[in-house]
């Protein structure tokens, strides 16, 4: 099995606020991220696909196809958007790194038909990221990742 990773960057804004909690609770739990006007990040997304290289093309999947999928599913949906209001898949959820990574996994998993989606890693900043794996996969042993 070979792993192939493509990286893209997008910029978006968000706010952390749970309407079921009081203003004070929101402020206590989410801190600065609760600023009602929102704030933004330059997100870096790494998408890793696992598979066997095709004997004819030598490719796990055509990188251009992956690029098109990422453009359609992620860039057009999230780049320069306010995630809380403009991304329906995140409606009713706090748009944390964990939740955005999971939504991106769900958007991509069925679209990648050559090879299999292995990992979605979303960096909110260079020091904070979330990894999403298929449950049950021996995901985080670091071998070959």
């Amino acid at each position: 099995m070979v792993l192939l990773t493509r990286k893209i960057e997008f910029s978006a804004s968000h706010v952390y606020h749970n309407p079921a909690l009081s203003l004070e609770e929101n402020r206590r739990i989410f801190g600065k991220c609760n600023n009602p006007y929102g704030h933004g990040h330059n997100y870096t997304l790494e998408v890793t696909v696992a598979g066997e290289p095709d004997p004819v093309t030598g490719m796990v999947l055509d990188l251009k196809e992956l690029k098109d999928i990422l453009e359609r599913e992620v860039m057009q949906r999230m780049d320069h958007r306010f995630l809380n209001k403009e991304v329906p898949e995140l409606a009713g959820q706090i748009p944390t790194c964990e939740n955005i990574a999971r939504v991106i996994w769900e958007l991509l998993d069925s679209k990648i038909t050559q090879g299999k989606l292995h990992r979605v890693r979303l960096y909110e900043t260079p020091d904070l990221f979330a990894d999403c794996y298929r449950n049950g996969a021996s995901a985080s042993n670091g071998k070959g990742i």
Binding site: C97, E98, A101, R102, W105, E106, R121, P126, D127, L128, F129, A130, D131, C132, Y133, R134, N135, G136, A137, A139, S140
Partner: peptide, 13 residues
């Protein structure tokens, strides 16, 4: 609900 597994990563210096 358990189709995926999520991890949070954080860097310190």
């Amino acid at each position: 609900p358990h189709a995926v597994k999520l991890e949070l990563g954080r860097r310190y210096r």
